[in-house]
């Protein structure tokens, strides 16, 4: 985990007042001298912190896949990396609301009291009751992002007053590659809704196109919210726990 703003207030610079700035930070002496509203800019030194938000929806425990294992392992890895970087951390999981995981600030081995059984999307959970994320902390969302809706809405709330926001999309291999050809009875893991379709090459390609379009929406929303997005395949991750992609995305730093 990289170094981030410290834990003390230290004068850093002056700058011209901008509407909306805190009036308490106006340098009245400089105003007297120059007749211009000048603002004192301080470096705030705070304790570095990471909020790890796990998607608790049922799709994260998709049967026959390694998504749940990968999601937990990934969250634990991020938490351990934060601890190694002297970050405090907090683990959250989305359900009907976004709530802290029991012992989520401790070692991942002690995390308890959560399950991937929610029918509520993380966006709804975050918007329904905004979690008390620590300001200026690092926010990491681990989810498959497979719900409908504008990504920027949820991401804006997640990235609010965050020092940095990372979105890790964790997909199963079956999410990436559509089923083989034939008559398929598709069952939604969260709603149990059923759809029977005849799957052929063109249908498979359309699925891939839809997934790519969906990921692109999230990618652009992440950038718009000042964050980054990374996609991992659960089965690939659990195969050797190679965190290289996290390092490449500068979410963690490998020493």
């Amino acid at each position: 985990m990289a170094n981030r703003p410290g834990s003390s207030l230290e004068f850093m610079d002056h700058r011209e007042y901008q509407p909306g700035d805190d009036l308490r930070h106006i340098d009245w002496s400089a105003f007297a001298r120059t007749d211009k509203l000048t603002l004192k800019v301080f470096r705030e030194e705070v304790t570095p912190h990471a909020d790890i938000v796990l998607d608790g929806s049922r799709s994260m425990a998709l049967e026959g896949t390694a998504k749940a294992q990968a999601a937990l392992g990934l969250a634990a890895a991020v938490a351990e990396a934060a601890a190694n970087a002297n970050f405090t951390h907090a683990a959250w999981i989305t359900g009907d609301f976004c709530r802290p995981i029991h012992h989520g600030a401790d070692s991942p081995a002690t995390w308890d009291g959560f399950a991937f059984d929610s029918r509520t999307t993380p966006a709804e959970a975050v918007l329904r009751s905004p979690p008390a994320f620590r300001p200026h902390g690092v926010r990491i969302l681990i989810s498959d992002l497979l719900w409908m809706g504008e990504p920027i809405v949820a991401l804006s709330r997640l990235a609010e007053r965050a020092a940095a926001t990372f979105v890790i999309q964790l997909l199963a291999r079956d999410d990436v590659d559509p089923p083989e050809r034939g008559n398929i009875r598709l069952v939604d893991s969260e709603t149990n809704e059923i759809q029977e379709i005849f799957l052929d090459a063109s249908a498979q390609q359309r699925y891939r196109d839809n997934l790519a379009r969906h990921q692109d929406h999230w990618q652009r929303a992440a950038v718009q919210a000042g964050g980054r997005m990374l996609t991992l395949v659960a089965e690939d991750l659990v195969e050797d726990w190679d965190l290289g992609p996290l390092a490449a995305a500068q979410i963690v730093k490998v020493l």
Partner: peptide, 24 residues
């Protein structure tokens, strides 16, 4: 039909249904 549980049907709700495949 081969039963297949998917994370979400959102990517299958394709409004443009060609004749050759993907037909509901």
């Amino acid at each position: 039909f081969r039963r297949q549980t998917v994370s979400s049907l959102m990517l299958w709700l394709d409004q443009r249904r060609p004749r050759e495949g993907g037909v509901r």
